[in-house]
C-alpha cells in the first residue's frame, strides 16, 4: 500500500484523533493555567495553611509520573465515589500535572517583578488584591510567558498518554490502525509529524505572538 493510499483509507481517523488531541490540549491548558495561578499565589500567601496545601499539591504532582496520576485518577478515584468519564479523567490528569509545574513558574515570575513596583503600588494606597491584579500580575505574565511556551509543548506531549485509558486521541487512533495494518512506520511516523507540526508551527508561533502582544500592551515593544 502506498503512503497516499494509506492516508486515503485512514486519513479521517487520523484527523478525528488530531482534533481530539487539540481539544484535550486546549482544555488541559485552561485547567493548568487556572491551577498554576491559584497554587502559585497560594505559595506566596502569608497564611501558612494555604502555603502548606499548595506545597503538598506541587510536590505530589511533580514527584510522581503523569501516567501514575492518570491511572490513579481513572482507576482509583471511582473507589472514593468520584467517577470521571475517561475523556474528563484524561484532561483533568494532564491539567493537574502541568498546573503543578506552572505554579512554580507563576511563583518565580511574581517574585521577579522589581521591588519598586510593589512599593509604588503600596505608596498609591492600593489594596493587596488590586496591587496584584493591576500592577504585579501583568508584569509577571510577561516574565513567565517563555516558560509557558515550553510547558504547553510538554502538555501537548502529555495528552498522548490518555490513549492508554482509551480516549480516542491521535495516539490512540494510530495505535489502533497499527494493530490492524502493522504499517508501523506509516502510522506512528504520521502521528510524530502531526505532533511536531502542532508544537512547532502552532503552539510556538502562538506563544511568540502572545509575548509580543503583551509587550505592546505594557508599552515595552
Amino acid at each position: 500500500m502506498s503512503y497516499l493510499e494509506f492516508l486515503g483509507q485512514y486519513g479521517d481517523r487520523i484527523l478525528s484523533g488530531t482534533l481530539v488531541t487539540v481539544l484535550l490540549t486546549v482544555l488541559s491548558s485552561v485547567l493548568a493555567i487556572a491551577i498554576a495561578l491559584v497554587t502559585g499565589l497560594m505559595r506566596l500567601s502569608p497564611n501558612a495553611v494555604l502555603r502548606g496545601i499548595a506545597t503538598v499539591y506541587i510536590e505530589i504532582f511533580r514527584g510522581t509520573s503523569l501516567l501514575v496520576q492518570l491511572y490513579w485518577i481513572f482507576y482509583v478515584l471511582p473507589l472514593f465515589g468520584v467517577t470521571l468519564e475517561k475523556f474528563t479523567a484524561g484532561f483533568v490528569a494532564v491539567g493537574m500535572n502541568l498546573g503543578a509545574y506552572g505554579a512554580e513558574l507563576v511563583r518565580g515570575a511574581i517574585l521577579s517583578v522589581p521591588r519598586g513596583q510593589w512599593e509604588a503600588a503600596l505608596a498609591l494606597n492600593m489594596t493587596p488584591a488590586r496591587r496584584m491584579i493591576r500592577v504585579i500580575l501583568p508584569q509577571a505574565v510577561l516574565i513567565m510567558l517563555p516558560g509557558w511556551g515550553n510547558l504547553l509543548i510538554e502538555l501537548l506531549k502529555g495528552t498522548a498518554l490518555v490513549a492508554l485509558i482509551a480516549v480516542a486521541d491521535l495516539m490512540f487512533q494510530v495505535k489502533q490502525i497499527n494493530g490492524t495494518t502493522f504499517l508501523s512506520a506509516e502510522t506512528f511516523g504520521t502521528a510524530l509529524i502531526i505532533y511536531y507540526v502542532i508544537a512547532r508551527f502552532m503552539i510556538t508561533p502562538f506563544m511568540r505572538w502572545l509575548e509580543r502582544a503583551m509587550q505592546r500592551k505594557l508599552g515595552r515593544a
Partner: peptide
Amino acid sequence: IEFIRSTPLVLQIFFVFYVGPQF
C-alpha cells in the same frame, strides 16, 4: 533535537519498538 523534544515520548517508544520488525 527540536523534533524529538516536541513529540511525545510514549509515541517514540511505540515507533522504535514497532517499526523495526516491519523492516
